[in-house]
Amino acid sequence: MKREEIKVCVMRVGGTNCDAETQRAFQELGVQAETLHLNELIKRRNLLDYQVLVFPGGFSFGDYVRAGVILARWLSAELGKELKTFIEENRPILGICNGFQVLVEYGLLPGFEGVSAYPEATLATNIPQGYNCRWIHLKHENKGKCIFTSKIPTGKVLHIPVAHSEGRFLFPKEKEQQLLDKLYENDMMVLRYCNENGEYAEGSYPTNPNGSFHDIAGICNKDGTIFGLMPHPERALYWWQQPDWTRREQMPQYGDGKLFFESLIDYLAKKF
C-alpha cells in the first residue's frame, strides 16, 4: 500500500482534545488522517474504511466514573462488531494517554488472551497525586513485536512529555509478578520510564512521573498491533516542541515522537 493511500481514523467524543495534533502528526508523514466524532462513525458505520484507529488524549466524557471507561463501554455497545473485525484483521489501534486508558478499560490491553471481558490492568491516579505535565525519558523495551516501535532500536532512550493525572499502570497485586512475566514472555513490554542515561526510574519521582508499577509507560497486545502509552508522541514531533531547543546549536528536524508514527506507517505500507 502506498503511503498516501493509508487512511487513519482519529476518533473523538466530547472531551477528546488531542485530536488535532495527532491528526497533524500523521499528515506530516504523508498519510491521510481524518478526525471523526464517534457519533459520525456510528451513523456512517464505515470504520472498516480505515487501516488505523487512533484514540487520542483528552478527557473523554469528562473521565467521569474512571478515566476512559465511559468511552470504552460506549464503543463496545455501539461499534463492537466493526471493532472486532478491525482487530481480527490485525489493523493497528493506537491509544495515547486517555486513549491508552480506553484500551485498557475495553480489555484490549494487555489482552493476554485476546479481548478480556474485564480490564486486566488499570491506570490509577498518580502518586504523587495530581495532574503532571513534564518531559520524561523512556526506554524502548520491545524486542520486535510491537509494530509501533519497529524502527526504534531496543534500549534506545526517548525524550517525550507526559500530561495526565491517571497514569499509574497497575496489575492486580496478587498477580503482579505473574502478569509482568507474561508481558515479557510475549514481548508486550514497550516503554519504561528511565532517566536521561537510560537507568530505570525504579519508581522514583519524577523520573517515573506517576508511580507506575515497574516503571511501565506503554505496552502492546500479544500481536503487537494494539499499543497504548501514557506519554504524548504527537507533542514531540517537531524540533521546536522540545523543551530545550533554544540550547542547541543544531536540532534534528523531528523529535522522538515521530518514530512511533513512522514505524506504524512502515508496517502498513508493507502489510496492506
Binding site: 488531542c18 495534533e21 505535565c133 504527537e234 507533542r235 514531533l237
Partner: peptide, 12 residues
C-alpha cells in the same frame, strides 16, 4: 506542572 501547558502541541 498541574496545568497542561503543551496540549495542542504548539507551545514553542
Amino acid at each position: 506542572r498541574t496545568y497542561d501547558h503543551e496540549v495542542k502541541g504548539n507551545t514553542a
